[in-house]
Design a protein around this nucleic acid. Structure first.
Length: 376
RNA sequence: GGAGAGGUUCCCGAGUGGCCAAAGGGAGCAGACUGUAAAUCUGUUGGCGAAGCCUUCGGAGGUUCGAACCCUCCCCUCUCCA
């Protein structure tokens, strides 16, 4: 395992927000950080250069998807994931645990591992904790994740307990077989919305010892308040000296509240998927670019935004591209959304450093708040 | 001029006596999307506040308890033959 030498550079005096830095083989990462999702060795619709331009320094890859196609062994023979996709920044790979949740209809969970039916060709595949780690070592990501079960919501206490304990046993097996010295390994805290389960899971994972700790199974259908209460209850318990990662979260508001609780890392498909589905994020609220009110709107998506898209194109043009299903729409929208997300994190880092986070946060919510016309 | 086919709700197009405010598709309008089986999915698209009522299937008459659907005349489009 690789120690990321995570250090906290600054803290907010009024909340748990913290600004830190870690060192991966592919460069330093300033936290809090947002990691765009690049499931199949690609952040959908944008090039590595464009990713770099929007300021992304670390992205996600997915073990399950790359295991099925083109095969992690093949990627290893081709020089690893970074070289394969021509991305020189850092990569965190998810273990496939999320697919246990998202492809639940075609898999079967057992103690040894999860039997999947490939969503591509229906063939039967097994992902065991050992397999997931082996695959991630083949991919050569900077940060690997333990193989876990992302539980659905709602879930009974009994099932959550059972699943959480299995996830802990899997984590120990992952830790056992993980041998890459240049790759960090994170544990994943499960336990659904039950505070005692979350806590005992975290305790067990800390006994095993990881380079960072993630919170899983959030934003899977539970109420916002439930997610926040898990965050608020658990973040103070997480080791201060290790990165804290909330998996799969979230909306801009979620990121800000997560940072307030002391979370360092986030990933989410929202900026990329929603871009392709016509929702653009701005500090003044979301813009549904397909709405007919933008038909002849010559302004940029977000006034003052410095992204490639906003510097060049009008809402009217972007609406036209989207309505016409032109491929450029997906790319330009994704560039803007990623620029917004990455910029949001950068603004938060700055606010924490200047110890103005609480004021900044109030301002953020006021501007994003419903009732305000986007961009006006 | 002759023969034939046809005119349906924004568009295409089904429907040929009651279960039709009218299938399906397109286009439009709106919404959803949180470790990506997603360039996807959902809702909606005559009027009125609901049960229900009103207007609507080229136009005008007619038959019938009842017509988008049957009959008559008219208008228009397309194809073929002169």
């Amino acid at each position: 395992m690789k120690d990321l030498n995570f250090s906290v550079i600054a803290r907010s005096s009024s909340c748990n927000a913290r600004r830190g830095r870690m060192n991966t083989v592919h460069g330093p990462i300033d936290t809090p950080v947002f990691m765009p999702v690049g499931t199949q060795a690609s952040v959908k619709s944008v090039s590595p250069e464009e990713l770099d331009d929007v300021g992304a320094r670390i992205i996600l890859g997915n073990t399950y998807h790359l295991f099925l196609r083109p095969g992690t062994d093949r990627i290893a023979r081709l020089g690893g994931l970074h070289k394969f996709m021509h991305w020189s920044g850092s990569i965190l790979t998810d273990s496939g645990g999320f697919q246990v949740f998202s492809l639940a209809r075609i898999n079967k969970i057992e103690e040894d591992g999860v039997a999947f039916q490939s969503h591509i060709d229906g063939s039967r595949r097994v992902l065991r904790p050992e397999t997931a780690i082996e695959c991630q070592m083949q991919l050569g990501s900077d940060i690997a994740m333990c193989f876990d079960e992302c539980t659905s919501y709602p879930v009974s206490y009994e099932y959550a307990l059972d699943s959480m304990e299995r996830t802990v046993r899997w984590a120990a097996r992952c830790r056992e077989v993980h041998t890459r010295e240049d790759q960090a390994l994170f544990g994943i805290v499960q336990g659904s919305v039950f505070p005692d389960l979350r806590r005992s899971c975290l305790d067990a994972l800390m006994k095993i010892g990881f380079d960072g700790y993630a919170l899983g199974s959030l934003s899977v259908g539970e109420a916002k308040e439930e997610m926040m209460s898990v965050l608020e209850a658990l973040t103070p318990e997480l080791p201060v000296s290790k990165p804290r990662y909330v998996m799969g979260v979230g909306t801009p508001e979620d990121l800000v509240e997560g940072v307030r609780c002391g979370v360092d890392m986030f990933d989410c498909v929202m900026p990329t998927r929603n871009a392709r589905n016509g929702t653009l994020f701005t500090s003044n609220g979301n813009v549904q670019i397909k709405n007919n009110r933008y038909q002849e709107d010559e302004g940029p998506v977000e006034p003052g935004c410095t992204c490639y898209t906003c510097r060049r194109f009008s809402r009217a043009y972007l609406r036209h591209l989207y309505m016409s299903r032109e491929l450029l729409a997906y790319r330009l929208n994704t560039i803007h959304n990623l620029h917004y997300y990455v910029g949001l994190m950068s603004a938060m880092r700055e606010a924490i450093e200047g110890d103005t986070f609480e004021d900044w946060r109030r301002d953020f919510h006021r501007k994003r708040g419903t009732g305000t016309e986007p961009g006006e």
